[in-house]
Design a binder for these strands. Structure first.
Lengths: 218, 218
DNA sequence: TCACCCAGTTGTGTCGACAGTCTTCAGGTG
DNA sequence: CACCTGAAGACTGTCGACACAACTGGGTGA
């Protein structure tokens, strides 16, 4: 007789948060849509206060922003903001690259990054899972730096990144292609700080332009 | 007859948030202290729900973190986290420096930064106002980059920075001295990217060590 | 003596209700 | 016809109460 699976101890607030975040990131709510507390609480089957807390959390994540009379709306990013966002990402991941290369665990790190590369390649192009794998690669890079504050800062940007990606109706496969990411890992393996940073920078700039352009013609 | 001053339209939640943040950052609550919803709501004279929302906000700011049974406690940082924090700051402000130097408004920026420098010097050493002015200088640097996402990312770190500073019982005046910051502005004025970044990096490293050491012997 | 059980206390989690505000629109008034 | 006025509707802001889980301390039986 197998042991019982441990019970789900998450609070309603957490589950509501996940549900709302998922609904927004899956495109169920489009940028500009109004998220009413009453409507959401009835459809989720929880009280308004619980929904409210989840919405406030999403607000701090940057997925929704307050409009007139405190009413929350799904956020969207201007092309300029998209470019700015990827600049910040480049700065953060640049630090990550420097740290990874300078760390004694560089070998193990490259191995882990190559595995993440495989997981990207294993997903269908244009699928949400591929986006997830792509972001997971970059997050792993941050984690491998061993800098927990860096990881936190990056994760706080994640919501907005997903908004930017989501707004790009036409998701171009080349953006997640192996040859975009592999050179980064290669440079890390060789211990080439300048090279890794340059490749990363180029990747971010290209991505920024791609998503910024998509945001220009809604 | 002069026009009436516009009324304060802030919500109770915002005021509770400010009050709690101020209480923590002024040292009224020390790291590790338990922040009970009931206690706070009675002393602030608002309902638990309102306090609750403010606490959740502080949680996302990194000022408090959940302990056993979801009870919130005032956060403290380990020396390692302090060093990591300042590394991230260096990366972000490094980007800011690059952007400011590359922007056409570089002259106006240096003027503004020098004014901020004056405001630091105008405050008494070892005073909270001086810490405020110091942080304002760095925030201004980020703002002048024109990158709103950078500003946001920096501000999300601000809470934790203040925790780190607060934990350093002995605030050493040299940390906010003019000769710590002036070289940064000088290098920006000269358009010396590498120099500005190096000075900034040194400033951050020195600050990190200072605050990390203070955190080591509580 | 020690393990166990059982209130009592102290927290947070969640809810439903009331209050206040802004918008909208119909209707009256000059 | 333009404008002011009032009522209705749709929101969010705020509150108090109940439910529930975890720790605490003392009593009980072997």
């Amino acid at each position: 007789m197998e042991p019982l699976a441990s019970l789900d101890r998450s609070t309603l607030r957490e589950r509501a948060l996940d549900a709302l975040r998922g609904a927004i990131l899956s495109g169920q709510y489009r940028p500009g849509d109004h998220l009413g507390e009453v409507e959401l609480s009835t459809s989720l089957g929880v009280s308004r206060g619980t929904v409210r807390e989840a919405l406030r959390h999403l607000q701090q994540e940057g997925l929704v922003s307050p409009g007139a009379r405190g009413m929350l709306r799904v956020n969207s990013l201007t092309p300029a903001e998209v470019r700015e966002l990827f600049q910040v990402r480049a700065a953060l991941e640049g630090l990550a690259v420097r740290e990874v290369i300078g760390s004694p665990r560089r070998e193990a790190a490259t191995t882990a990054l190559r595995e993440a590369l495989e997981r990207i390649a294993a997903e269908d192009e244009d699928s949400p899972a591929r986006i997830q794998a792509d972001l997971a690669f970059h997050l792993l890079l941050c984690r491998l730096s061993g800098n927990s504050m860096l990881v936190e800062a990056w994760q706080r940007l994640e919501g907005r990144m997903r908004v930017a990606i989501l707004n790009a109706a036409a998701w171009q496969a080349p953006m997640t292609a192996r040859d975009r990411h592999a050179p980064i890992v290669d440079a890390i393996e060789r211990g080439n700080v300048a090279g890794a940073q340059r490749v990363l920078e180029e990747h971010m700039t290209a991505a920024a332009e791609h998503f910024a352009e998509s945001a220009e013609q809604p």
